[in-house]
Lab assay of single mutants.
Amino acid sequence: GLTEEQKQEIREAFDLFDTDGSGTIDAKELKVAMRALGFEPKKEEIKKMISEIDKDGSGTIDFEEFLTMMTA
């Protein structure tokens, strides 16, 4: 499992990506986040990433899903 410290770091990354503070990361926010990390993702790639992570089919990534992605 994760230490509380690791969870906190992932939470901070999540909050950075969640620019509108909605508690979820949408495609637009993910794209901005990827760019910040030096990637140039295409729209299809973003969609694919979200569909792989987005277990509940909401079209957005919540913290639990993000946590799973970061620790996979």
Rank of each mutant, 00 (worst) to 15 (best):
M34Q: 01
L30G: 01
D15P: 01
F14A: 00
L2G: 04
E29F: 13
G59A: 06
V32P: 11
E4R: 11
F17N: 02
E45C: 15
Q6N: 07
D20E: 04
F14T: 00
G38L: 01
K7C: 11
V32H: 15
M49P: 02
G21E: 05
R35F: 02
T71R: 06
L2W: 12
I61P: 00
L2T: 05
G38Y: 01
V32M: 14
D15I: 08
E9W: 14
L37H: 05
D15E: 08
F14H: 00
K42V: 11
T68E: 12
G59L: 07
D26E: 09
M70H: 02
G23C: 06
A33E: 00
D54S: 12
G59M: 08
Q8G: 06
E45T: 10
A33K: 02
D20V: 04
D62S: 15
E65C: 11
K7G: 03
A27Y: 13
G1Y: 07
E52G: 08
E65A: 13
K42M: 11
F63N: 00
K28G: 08
T24W: 09
E44T: 06
K55G: 08
L67K: 02
F17P: 00
S58L: 09
A13P: 00
V32S: 15
L67P: 00
F66H: 00
G1T: 09
G1D: 08
A13V: 14
I46D: 04
G23N: 03
K28W: 11
K43P: 15
S22A: 04
F66W: 07
T60I: 05
A72E: 12
F66P: 00
E4G: 06
G57R: 06
A27L: 14
K42A: 12
D26Q: 08
K7R: 11
F66C: 01
E65K: 11
I10T: 04
P41H: 11
M70D: 00
L2I: 07
A72W: 10
K31H: 13
L37A: 08
E40Y: 15
K28R: 07
E5G: 08
K55I: 10
A72Q: 09
E4D: 12
A13F: 15
E44G: 14
A27E: 11
A13L: 15
S22G: 04
E9M: 11
A27D: 05
F39H: 09
D62H: 07
P41G: 14
F63W: 10
G38I: 01
E29T: 07
K43Q: 13
D26A: 07
G23Y: 01
T24Y: 13
P41D: 07
G38E: 03
M69L: 12
F39L: 10
M69D: 01
K7F: 13
K28N: 14
K47D: 15
S22N: 12
E29A: 13
I61L: 08
I61R: 00
R35P: 01
I10E: 00
G57I: 07
R11K: 09
T3L: 04
T24K: 07
I25Y: 00
G23H: 04
M69W: 15
E12N: 12
D56W: 07
A72L: 14
L30P: 00
E29V: 07
M69E: 02
T19K: 10
E45I: 13
E4C: 12
T24Q: 08
K55R: 08
D62V: 04
G23W: 02
T68W: 13
V32K: 15
E64D: 11
S51I: 05
D26S: 12
G23P: 00
L30Q: 00
K28S: 12
L67V: 07
E45Y: 11
M34L: 13
M34Y: 03
I53V: 11
E9L: 14
A33M: 14
M69C: 14
S22Y: 03
S58D: 14
A36K: 13
L16P: 01
E5R: 12
L16Y: 14
L37I: 06
Q8Y: 09
E5D: 12
D15Q: 07
S51D: 13
K47V: 08
E29N: 13
K48V: 05
Q8I: 08
T19H: 13
F17Y: 10
K28F: 10
D56H: 10
M70T: 02
I10V: 06
I50R: 01
A72S: 11
F63A: 01
M34N: 00
E29I: 10
F39Q: 04
E52Q: 12
F63R: 01
I53T: 04
E65P: 00
K7S: 05
E65T: 15
L16W: 14
G1V: 12
E12Q: 12
Q6S: 07
F66I: 03
M49G: 02
G59S: 07
D54P: 04
K28I: 08
L37P: 02
V32A: 15
E5V: 11
R35A: 13
K28C: 13
P41N: 06
E65N: 06
K31P: 05
Q8H: 12
K43A: 15
T3K: 04
K7H: 10
E44A: 07
E64I: 09
G1E: 12
L2R: 04
K31N: 11
I53K: 03
A33G: 06
A72G: 08
K42L: 13
M70W: 09
E40V: 08
D18N: 03
E29P: 00
I10A: 08
R11T: 01
I50T: 03
I61V: 05
Q8E: 05
D18T: 03
G59E: 05
D26K: 09
K7M: 11
K42Y: 07
K31T: 14
F66V: 03
S51P: 03
L2A: 04
T68L: 13
R11E: 01
E9F: 10
S51H: 12
D26Y: 04
I10M: 13
L16M: 13
L30M: 06
A27P: 06
F14P: 01
G38Q: 02
K48W: 04
F66Q: 00
I25C: 03
L37E: 02
K42E: 15
E45K: 06
D15S: 05
T68N: 14
K43H: 13
V32N: 15
T71S: 09
D54L: 14
T71H: 05
L30F: 05
K43S: 14
K42P: 08
L37W: 02
I61M: 04
K28L: 08
I25R: 00
D62R: 11
T24I: 05
K28H: 12
I25S: 00
E5Y: 08
I10P: 01
D56E: 07
G59T: 06
K42D: 15
G1A: 09
G21V: 02
K47C: 14
T60S: 08
D18S: 03
L37V: 06
G23R: 04
E64A: 10
M70E: 02
E12C: 14
E9N: 12
G57L: 09
I10Q: 02
G57C: 12
L16V: 06
K43Y: 15
F66S: 00
E5S: 09
F14K: 00
R35K: 14
E12K: 14
D20G: 03
E65V: 08
E44R: 05
E5P: 06
G57F: 12
E44N: 08
M34T: 01
A27F: 13
I53M: 13
T71E: 12
M69Q: 03
A36L: 13
A13K: 12
F17W: 10
E64R: 04
D62E: 07
F14N: 01
I50F: 13
K7P: 01
E4Y: 07
E4T: 10
E4L: 08
M49Q: 02
D26I: 02
G1L: 10
D18V: 03
I50K: 01
F17T: 03
F63K: 01
E45H: 11
T60R: 10
L37M: 12
D15F: 08
K55T: 09
K47E: 15
E9C: 15
